[in-house]
């Protein structure tokens, strides 16, 4: 993997809170990375410092091997449309797209127009009169049609209905396939984007708790279901990140790949296994981030 963004010991302190706590992470070139975490975990802060919209308290950021701050050569190759992006007063979507066309060298006008149609975006209404979903569509269209070499999407789907979200995922994936580039997708609708993302970075309380490829993360946890005592015996000494019990039945989610011997033992004990979705895994890990140790770079 070639890293196109390198974040090194990045700390961001606001007056009383630590938004980013000594974050070191890289983002792979020409891949889609999911930046996952709860609200307030530090996702937006991280992306806004990488794009030089915000400033680090400590640490460094490099993109394309150089510092982005006041660096037109780097910034012009990146696109970051915030979830709460402000547009010019009285501007209409076509104004915003006209500006994006000026500033992003790879802008594809036809693509933008077809997206406008697919999102049914009213072009002659001022942006401040758009609904939340239509506002998100403006940002999504700028993000996709700009075809910047590094594109950040910050919770891009707010207010979009299920159909529009699917349009976003499909069009993003299709355009990414024909024009590979680096995409960082921040989200808490993890299951929805699970099939899109190749890498997973999970941030919790300003710290990176997972940084790995999505494939290896998928087998990283399993839920063991069965009779309580059997489950307890099997999970003894393993890293259990969640348990549910109902009567004499218990479900325990354990971290770590299961070995052949494990599977044999499970069959012997009459226990079942259930796969753990990315969303469940992230939820459990961010709930237990302070108890479990980080799994940075697992099987990278």
């Amino acid at each position: 993997m070639t890293a196109v963004i390198e974040v090194d010991h990045l700390t961001k302190r606001y007056r009383e809170t630590l938004a980013l706590d000594d974050v070191t992470v890289t983002f792979a070139e020409n891949a889609i990375t999911g930046l996952l975490g709860r609200n307030g975990a530090g996702k937006t802060t991280l992306m806004s410092i990488i794009t030089a919209q915000n400033f680090a308290t400590q640490g460094t950021v490099r993109a394309f091997g150089a510092e982005p701050y006041e660096n037109a050569a780097v910034l012009s190759r990146m696109c970051f449309v915030r979830e709460s992006q402000q547009y010019q007063d009285e501007s209409k979507p076509h104004h915003a797209f006209a500006a994006a066309r000026m500033f992003f060298a790879n802008w594809d006008q036809q693509l933008a127009e077809s997206l406008v149609e697919e999102f049914r975006l009213p072009m002659n209404r001022t942006i401040k009169k758009l609904s939340r979903g239509q506002l998100s569509a403006v940002g999504v269209i700028i993000g996709i049609a700009s075809r910047a070499e590094i594109t950040f999407f910050d919770e891009p789907y707010l207010g979009l209905d299920a159909v529009a979200r699917q349009v976003f995922y499909d069009r993003l994936l299709a355009d990414y396939a024909s024009h590979p580039r680096t995409i960082v997708l921040s989200s808490h609708l993890i299951d929805e984007i699970a099939h899109l993302i190749e890498n997973v970075v999970v941030i919790d309380d300003g710290r990176i708790i997972v940084d790995t490829d999505a494939e290896s993360l998928r087998g990283e946890a399993t839920t063991i279901v069965g009779e309580r005592s059997a489950v307890e015996t099997f999970t003894l000494g393993r890293r259990v990140i969640h348990t549910d019990a109902l009567g004499n039945t218990m479900a325990a989610t354990v971290l770590g790949q299961l070995t052949e011997a494990d599977r044999h033992a499970l069959t012997q004990a009459g226990l079942d296994t259930e796969p753990v979705s990315l969303q469940q895994l992230v939820v459990r890990m961010t709930q237990h981030a302070h108890q479990t140790s980080p799994m940075n770079g697992a099987s990278r």
Partner: peptide, 11 residues
């Protein structure tokens, strides 16, 4: 704020 989304430098 919009100019920042257009990736301009402050200069």
């Amino acid at each position: 704020p919009f100019s920042q989304a257009m990736s301009t430098t402050r200069r």
